[in-house]
Computed example of a mutant assay.
Amino acid sequence: MGDICVFCASSAKVDQSYLEEAYLLGEVLVENGYGLKYGGGAVGSMGAVANKVLELNGRVTGVIPYFMVQVEWEHKGVENMIHVETMAERKELLIKDIEAIVVLPGGTGTLEELFEVLSLKKLGQFTQPVILVNTNGYFNALNDFLNKMIDEKFMRPEHGELWHIVDSVKEIPEALKNIPDWDEDALKFAAV
């Protein structure tokens, strides 16, 4: 199996349930033969998922900009750490050569990564599954808003397949088996 890219938060102040779900994600990845590709941080959900994968001797690739290294956000235990100049380079490398993207609850950085990938997928520039883990109903309002975009004809009905939602990381392996391939040619540059 290849790598799963995980978008998630660096805040350690969040409710413990979010960190536990990130920790469990690390376990799910290793048990199913996937490597972790993530933003290289050491704390919050980032640190939790990386720590669990490392604890289980799984594969971890971090991608982090130099400015984050300078403020000591880098996970020191990740040997395969790629340093880049910009956030844009980071995102580009994170989504290269991966099996899927898993999005855990997070803040503006996590959402910015998610929306860039959804936009790329809509334009046929990215075709892998994007799975949102809806811990504590975190993504309910976002899912409603995305569906409102479809209802109001800012996106086509087919664009509702850009993302998939699971309630727990335990559902990810089954979801990956059942998510249909994204037809990049049929939807490429598709207007509403």
Rank of each mutant, 00 (worst) to 15 (best):
21 E>Y: 08
46 M>R: 01
143 N>S: 12
85 E>W: 02
172 I>P: 05
76 K>I: 07
53 V>A: 05
102 V>F: 08
13 K>Q: 15
149 M>C: 11
143 N>I: 12
174 E>W: 08
170 K>F: 06
169 V>F: 00
72 E>H: 14
6 V>D: 00
163 W>P: 01
126 F>V: 04
70 Q>T: 09
154 F>I: 15
121 K>E: 01
128 Q>K: 13
119 S>W: 13
26 G>F: 08
2 G>Q: 13
180 P>D: 11
133 V>D: 02
172 I>D: 05
179 I>W: 07
159 H>C: 11
118 L>M: 10
173 P>V: 11
100 A>R: 07
140 N>A: 11
164 H>N: 13
165 I>G: 10
41 G>D: 00
20 E>S: 04
105 P>T: 03
32 N>H: 11
23 Y>H: 15
23 Y>N: 15
122 K>G: 00
73 W>G: 04
45 S>D: 07
94 L>C: 04
186 A>Q: 14
138 Y>K: 03
84 V>N: 06
2 G>Y: 11
7 F>G: 00
130 V>L: 11
83 H>T: 14
30 V>N: 08
15 D>Y: 10
4 I>M: 01
34 Y>R: 04
156 R>L: 11
111 L>S: 02
76 K>E: 13
38 Y>V: 07
39 G>F: 01
13 K>F: 14
174 E>V: 05
162 L>C: 10
54 L>M: 08
176 L>H: 05
18 Y>N: 07
131 I>Q: 06
190 A>D: 08
173 P>W: 10
32 N>T: 03
42 A>E: 12
189 F>V: 07
89 E>K: 09
65 P>N: 07
36 L>G: 00
75 H>D: 10
41 G>T: 04
19 L>M: 11
88 A>E: 12
146 L>K: 00
85 E>N: 06
66 Y>G: 10
93 L>T: 10
27 E>L: 06
107 G>H: 03
80 N>Y: 07
188 K>L: 03
127 T>E: 12
41 G>H: 01
27 E>K: 12
95 I>E: 08
94 L>M: 14
51 N>I: 03
160 G>T: 01
83 H>G: 11
149 M>E: 06
53 V>L: 00
180 P>H: 13
167 D>H: 10
100 A>V: 05
30 V>T: 14
30 V>G: 07
158 E>V: 10
188 K>H: 05
64 I>S: 07
174 E>P: 02
86 T>H: 00
76 K>G: 05
115 F>D: 01
11 S>F: 04
154 F>Q: 14
176 L>R: 01
165 I>C: 12
105 P>V: 02
114 L>D: 03
167 D>W: 09
125 Q>W: 08
84 V>W: 02
180 P>I: 09
182 W>E: 09
171 E>A: 15
124 G>V: 04
100 A>H: 02
183 D>H: 08
29 L>A: 06
63 V>I: 13
65 P>K: 04
101 I>V: 14
130 V>M: 07
